[in-house]
């Protein structure tokens, strides 16, 4: 499996990563190489194998519906890049 430069741009956009034009050929090559490595998987017939999402065969534990958290927004927002009136600010979102 080999990617094109266009594929690289699409994936970078999907993952919201800015990548300079100069770096695209390198990514194209490296990502294609990794996909080449991964390609070995296709040689194995897995039609009867159930996918394994977790290493342990456990089921979800449930928490009691109790409020345990208190307000710490000042502490949490101390580390935020841009806050005003307790709101996180981002460039205007157009819906």
């Amino acid at each position: 499996m080999s990617l094109t430069q266009d594929d690289v741009k699409k994936i970078a956009h999907l993952a919201r990563l800015s990548i300079s034009e100069d770096d695209i050929p390198a990514y194209e090559k490296e990502l294609s190489n990794i996909l080449g490595l991964v390609e070995q998987m296709s040689a194995v017939d897995t039609s009867d194998v159930a996918p394994m999402a977790h290493p342990l065969d456990m089921v979800q534990r449930l928490r009691d519906d109790v409020v345990t958290e208190t307000d710490h927004h000042e502490q949490y927002q101390d580390i935020a890049p841009n806050v005003e009136n307790s709101l996180y600010l981002v460039p205007q979102v157009i819906e």
């Binding site: 990617l3 594929d7 690289v8 994936i11 970078a12 999907l14 993952a15 990563l17 990514y27 990502l31 990794i34 996909l35 991964v38 998987m41 296709s42 194995v44 897995t46 194998v49 159930a50 996918p51 394994m52 999402a53």
Partner: peptide
């Protein structure tokens, strides 16, 4: 990027599901 690609529409089964099967 590899991860986003492996999960994206059209590739999910060939990559992600396949890998989970091999994991088993």
């Amino acid at each position: 990027m590899i991860g986003a690609y492996a999960l994206s529409a059209g590739y999910y089964d060939a990559y992600y599901i396949k890998a989970q099967q091999l994991r088993r």
